[in-house]
Simulated assay, not measured.
Amino acid sequence: MQQRCPVKNSRWIKTSCFHADEFRIMRSNPRIQSIGTAVPPYRISQDKHYAILESANGLSRAERLTMRRIYSKSGISWRYSILDEFDEQDHADHEVFHPAGELVTPVADRMTLFEKHAPGLCTDAAKACLKKLPLLKRNEITHIICFSCTGMYAPGLDIQLVEVLGLQRSTERTCINFMGCYAAINALKAAYHICRSEPEAVVLIAGAELCSLHYQKSAETNQMIANALFGDGAAAAIISCRDLGNDAESLSLHTFYSEFEPAGLQDMVWRIGNAGFDLRLTPEVPEAIRANIGELTGKLLKKAAISRAEVSHYAIHPGGTRILEACEQAMDLDQDATAISREVLDSYGNMSSVTILFVLEKLMRKVAESSKPEWVMACAFGPGLTMESVIMQTAGNAKS
């Protein structure tokens, strides 16, 4: 006889008698069980980055002053790149940075570099993620979701990761491409729905962003901002309802909410140009976020049925210092609430979609010390102007 599962919002089951472990899996929310991150070998100081672009771009005095102001207020000390061109003088053999204005690197060449470097970096992040779950056998991974907005090719990262990591070739694969800095939250959302519909599923999400491939020699303020903010990195996470042995650091996925603000459609734009991926990032973006993040947060909390006072931790995508300041002002947060976001921005810059997973990885280590469950809010922003958000809950298993 078919009966309704006694757990609210759980799926129909076909038998009236089932194993206790199956019931436990069905009643638990999908959880981020582990996160792994990776960065390329070339670490560049922000001061050196400024000096290279200043000399390469052939800027006027006024343009150099504008660039200096942008870099000095970036909140970034270091970034990473798959390019070694930051450690040498600018010359014609470089793949992206040629002597000022002499050559333009075509999109095809930039995509060749992405295909060359992204798989290894993404594999490093996935291996770091899986290392934290020694009880998980790789052939137990049922789904893989890959995401990036800085490179595309097919067969892509999804197939390469299946091969390199030794996953089953029947692993279900999904790719999320060109969504911008909020794509990792979309990947988490997709994994959440998979695990809700298939409680035994184990989902690997993995992304690589090689933003430095798209630095442009330009005196336009929009491009100067982009050049000053973005770096390279990769991240991966395992999501499942199952107990995979790392419960203390896990984050239970609870509620998602997404909305875009039409007034900001042209403030953040990401398009494929003839000489690279072109980012339009206007100075109005922080103000648009400041004007809308409060209402977005209210809708998210209402959907989650919790109050703002109940949120103990925040993981905000560090798109830049002005974006973090806008969120702090609109949400009445002090800098302690965004300390991890600021730390990631300072150490790595904005790595587009994978950045929020760098923040969440650090947060997971912090909340493992908590003896009681606590609410976490995470959010990220991208073209649209889109704001993606999620409410999570810590395990709270630490001993008092």
Rank of each mutant, 00 (worst) to 15 (best):
Ser258Phe: 07
Gly101Ala: 06
Lys137Asn: 13
Ala56Ile: 07
Leu345Ile: 06
Ile35Asp: 04
Glu140Lys: 11
His313Ala: 14
Ile82Gly: 04
Ala190Met: 12
Arg110Val: 02
Ala304Ser: 12
Ser252Cys: 10
Ala330Trp: 06
Met364Val: 01
Ser55Asn: 11
Trp12Ala: 11
Arg24Thr: 12
Ala190Asn: 12
Glu310His: 06
Gly233Asn: 02
Ile185Gly: 03
Gly245Asp: 04
Gly120His: 07
Glu261Arg: 06
Ala263Glu: 15
Leu188Trp: 02
Asn227Cys: 04
Gln329Ile: 07
Ala236Asn: 04
Tyr50Phe: 13
Thr150Phe: 04
Arg61Met: 08
Tyr71Met: 02
Phe256Thr: 03
Phe381Gly: 03
Lys303His: 05
Gly231Ile: 12
Glu88Val: 13
Ser312Glu: 10
Ser55Val: 05
Glu388Tyr: 07
Val39Trp: 08
Glu284Leu: 02
Ala206Asn: 02
Pro155Asp: 13
Val7Trp: 04
Ala126Pro: 13
Asn274Tyr: 05
Gly120Glu: 15
Thr297His: 10
Arg196Lys: 15
Ser307Cys: 03
Asp278Val: 11
Ala92Asn: 05
Thr66Gly: 03
Ser389Cys: 09
Val311Trp: 06
Leu130Lys: 05
Phe381Arg: 05
Gln329Glu: 15
Ser74Arg: 00
Pro99Gln: 04
Glu200His: 15
Gly156Glu: 09
Met364Lys: 00
Glu295Cys: 06
Cys129Leu: 14
Asp93Asn: 15
Gln33His: 09
Cys181Asn: 03
Leu324Thr: 10
His19Asp: 13
His117Gly: 01
Phe97Ile: 10
Met331Arg: 11
Glu198Pro: 08
Ser370Leu: 15
Met179Lys: 04
Lys362Thr: 14
Ile32Tyr: 01
Pro40Ile: 05
Met152Ser: 11
Ala235Trp: 14
Tyr348Glu: 00
Ile194Arg: 09
Tyr192Arg: 11
Val359Ala: 03
Val344Tyr: 04
Ser341Pro: 04
Ala395Phe: 08
Met331Gln: 10
Ala235Gln: 12
Leu279Lys: 00
Ser312Thr: 11
